[in-house]
Nucleic acid binder design. Structure first.
Length: 272
DNA sequence: AGTACGTCCTGATCGC
DNA sequence: TGCGATCAGGACGTAC
């Protein structure tokens, strides 16, 4: 599902498609609950006629500054994706919203499960002030990770999903980072050793960096319709599959209601 | 405050 | 073959 690498891929796709510089027409919103702020009417009125000046990303949020100082903010939820196509082209199934562009194309918001959301904000930085560090920027340090986990008794897996701890991780990359660092998903966060914390920090950066690169290569190879989803992780997510490191059959448990795949040999629950 | 869990959604898949 | 039940999980609201 859209996590940091997928959202970053979307950002790069939108920029390369020339969204910046385009003036938006009145958006067609077919699922009103998608708009979180302001009202749907104010959102449509506020977006119409404005020009997009850039596409930025914070965690899993896409932020498009507009030429009047406001910001169009998008979250893809679990199944959302964005495409820019000619207005005449057959609309895809599950098209939920569209933003007409002044060059005859349109920005399409496709979202089967309707978990994506839209905002029109004057101060997105304030709205996102509780979000944790960007894992691919220098602010994400071992010290920052240690500090945010030190007093927590929840399972490590659950905390990796909290956007206030790290911005941009989701269920799949959380599992991947735990696998790469050899940490069982149910390990209590405040029992992680210094070595485990530094290994987890490195694993998060490695997993995300690897995936961002995989998307970049796919964009180049498959332009102008690059994939919105790859599977650029190493821990298998299917019953009966073997660990890529030791061939032990991987297992799945539920942590906070989320499926968590791990290798019982490489990620022991009890560390001595 | 920290932790845990239900809720929103619908296409795909599973079991009888 | 068909149909109901289950699963998937990001972020938030609520409860303890």
């Amino acid at each position: 599902m859209p996590e940091l690498p997928e959202v970053e891929n979307t950002r790069q796709y939108l920029l390369r498609s020339g969204l910046a510089g385009q003036r938006l027409g009145a958006p067609e919103i077919t699922w009103a609950k998608t708009v979180r702020e302001p009202s749907v009417g104010e959102f449509i009125e506020g977006v119409a006629g404005r020009t997009v000046t850039d596409v930025q990303r914070r965690g899993k949020y896409l932020i498009a500054p507009l030429d009047d100082g406001q910001y169009l903010v998008l979250h893809l939820g679990m199944t959302g994706s964005l495409r820019i196509h000619d207005a005449g082209r057959e609309p895809p199934p599950m098209l939920r919203h569209l933003f007409p562009l002044d060059d005859g194309r349109e920005l399409r918001f496709i979202d089967p499960r309707k978990f994506g959301h839209l905002w029109l904000l004057t101060d997105p930085a304030d709205a996102m002030s509780k979000m944790g560090p960007e894992p691919l920027e220098p602010t994400f340090t071992i010290g920052a990770l240690t500090e945010s986990l030190a007093a927590r008794k929840a399972p490590a897996k659950a905390l990796l999903l909290e956007q206030s701890v790290i911005a941009g991780l989701g269920n799949l990359y959380a599992d991947e980072a735990l696998f790469l660092s050899g940490i069982h998903p149910e390990r209590t966060a405040n029992t992680l050793s210094d070595d485990e914390l530094s290994g987890l920090h490195r694993a998060i950066v490695t997993a995300l960096t690897r995936s961002v690169a995989a998307y970049a290569a796919a964009r180049d190879a498959e332009w102008p319709d690059p994939p919105t989803a790859l599977s650029p992780w190493t821990i298998p997510r299917a019953a009966g599959e073997g660990c890529p490191r030791c061939a032990t059959t991987v297992e799945m448990i539920r942590v906070r209601g989320r499926s968590s795949w791990y290798c019982p040999a490489c990620q022991p629950k009890d560390v001595t």
